[in-house]
Amino acid sequence: MEVLHITTENFESEVVKSEMPVLVDFWASWCGPCRMLAPVIEELAGELTDAKIGKINVDEEPDLAKKYGVMSIPTVIAFKNGEEVGRSVGFKPKNALVKLLK
């Protein structure tokens, strides 16, 4: 699956109302660890069949970052049925991100 570009417009449909769990990466272009995480997120999107992967640019979507209390990036949040079920802050290896969905 492709990495979804998530914005205020599609957050409701892609994350909140998603039937599949969603892993959302809050990032920004100026953030080094976020850029380190980017290939890991790409890889995950290619491998996971039972979850969707999306990215939210905190500079473009400050309200979404604020709503979910993102105070450091990268922050990855796992959503199930629109509810947060797990969160990790900072660069984390792939298996740690997969665990957020469990």
């Binding site: 660890p33 209390g69 993102v70 105070m71 450091s72 969160r87 802050v89 900072g90």
Partner: peptide
């Protein structure tokens, strides 16, 4: 950490 505690002001 990531919920108020930080070690990097510029980040």
């Amino acid at each position: 950490i990531g919920a108020g505690v930080s070690y990097c002001a510029t980040c």
